[in-house]
Amino acid sequence: MEALESRPRRRFLNYFLGSSLGAVVVSFLYPVIRFASPPLIPEATTNQVEAGDTSDPLLMTKGFKIVRFGAEPVILLKVTDTEYRAFSATCTHLDCIVGYQKERTRIFCNCHGGAYDLNGRNVSGPPPRPLTAYKVNLLAKGSEPAKIVVSKA
């Protein structure tokens, strides 16, 4: 008789013990998961960078160079002697850094074979979106090679 009476009480105690154990586990796990998730760190916004001048040997020979735009890589292309273009160098497919194939006049990603035209449009291969364009200004000063300034469009 007594055993029967104590059953609901035992069940209640078991339930209580179980849920407090669960709460302990959660109170351990929550800070661990939050700790392991990297905090958001605001980055200094970059609006423009100087990218050397038109006499840069990389631009002269390969026709392109990768410029540091804050933490972002930006590809600077020499299309003609007077025309320069800049795009985000991060492939829109899976985050690789693109390069320029001068002989085929296209921007190309060696990782998965994605190709963009010189307007940054994705023309073949896996990339889903075009590359973001940046503005290029040439600051000429007399007979010296012009300074290249890349800025957000």
């Binding site: 540091r68 899976l94 690789c96 060696n110 990782c111 074979g113």
Partner: peptide
């Protein structure tokens, strides 16, 4: 961190089938 991926870059052989599919 600021150089284009080099030519013929590919992962270790055991990931190549996924890599090729993605291509």
């Amino acid at each position: 961190l600021f150089a284009p991926a080099y030519e013929n870059i590919r992962p270790e052989w055991y990931f190549v089938f996924m890599f090729q599919t993605l291509k």
